[in-house]
């Protein structure tokens, strides 16, 4: 059965990532932990872009809402990490609900511009409230706040293995949530909206409500990634709210395959190493990003896994 094949593939990916924790050298171990958090961000984005067909250019605000929602209470109120993580996710959910209610009144190009502008306002707000957010230079989280007491066991989030395992846990939850969502009736409705919204509405689906849920789920997953990033790597800065961080998840999704579950993660991994390796030779890595974007949209609009699905593996979710 195709469903069983898909689930085994996803489980195999998780087991591989778990095994890599013991095999990878220190540098790549750290990179992979970071990439897994970004992959969660990419998955949250791809859910909206790949499946519901809504191209947002403002997802950095959800990532940043999670990041600051978690980091600000730690900085100013001395909250513990788990509580701050929940606060970050809640901030992302609230913001995505508000943005969805406003932005979903528009479609197509207007939706992209509106999301980009709201994200810009969010970014400027972080700069404007620098006395609390420390603006562009950002702030590091206190090490003490990143030691979590789990039923008597102290987990130190600055420890690489703990960091990797927590990132893997978050990645696993996000991946299976995404798999579950896209194979559910709700996920099918999103694909129907992407293919032909008018016809879906004629069939009796409330397309606005479905898109609203899609934006909120997407925003919440991205906020979880942002909150995790702040707590695991101990830093929050306005740079993560800039337009560049709205474009990166778009690039990751396009590269790996936006309408696939594993594509965004693959895209994030590929992109990270591409930038990492090219920046070893030249500082002009943005040039590669730009050329890559153009080539992708010209020749592989479905990305790596999207093309793979068309050619060889129809069962890929």
């Amino acid at each position: 059965m195709s469903g069983a094949k898909a689930i085994s593939l996803h489980v195999a990916v998780i087991i591989l990532l778990f095994a890599l924790n013991f095999l990878l050298p220190e540098y790549h171990h750290g990179v992979l932990a970071r990439v897994m958090v970004f992959a969660v961000f990419a998955m949250g984005y791809a859910l909206l872009f790949g499946y519901a067909g809504l191209l947002s250019l403002g997802h950095s605000m959800f990532f940043a809402a999670g990041m600051y929602g978690a980091a600000l209470p730690v900085l100013h109120l001395g909250w513990s990490a788990p509580l701050a993580f929940v606060a970050g996710i809640a901030a992302g959910t609230a913001l995505s609900l508000l943005i969805a209610l406003l932005a979903l009144r528009t479609t197509g190009v207007a939706f992209m511009i509106v999301t980009m502008m709201f994200a810009q306002v969010f970014y400027l707000a972080i700069i404007y409230f620098s006395p609390w957010t420390r603006g562009d230079e950002g702030f590091a989280l206190d090490r003490q706040a990143r030691i979590v007491d789990l039923g008597g066991n102290l987990v130190d989030l600055t420890n690489p293995t703990a960091r990797y395992m927590i990132a893997l846990l978050l990645f696993t939850i996000a991946l299976f949530t995404m798999l579950r969502v896209v194979t559910s009736p709700f996920g099918r409705v999103l694909v129907a909206i992407r293919e032909n919204e008018e016809r879906t509405r004629m069939l009796g689906y409330n397309t606005f409500a479905n898109k609203l849920v899609a934006v909120v789920v997407s925003g919440t997953v991205c906020a979880a990634a942002g909150a995790a990033y702040a707590l695991l790597f101990g830093f929050a800065g306005a740079g993560f709210a800039s337009v560049q961080y709205s474009i990166l998840p778009l690039l990751w999704s396009l590269l790996g395959g936006a309408a696939t579950t594993l594509g965004p993660a693959l895209g994030a991994l590929f992109m990270y190493y591409l930038v990492d390796i090219t920046s070893g030779y030249t500082s002009a890595y943005l040039l590669f990003v730009g050329i890559l974007l153009m080539l992708l949209v010209l020749f592989f609009p479905k990305g790596i896994l999207g093309t793979a699905r068309d050619r060889w593996a129809r069962w890929l979710p």
């Binding site: 474009i247 778009l250 040039l287 990003v289 730009g290 974007l293």
Partner: peptide, 8 residues
């Protein structure tokens, strides 16, 4: 997407 590429 393509003009974002051009921008970079």
């Amino acid at each position: 997407v393509a003009t974002i590429g051009l921008l970079y």
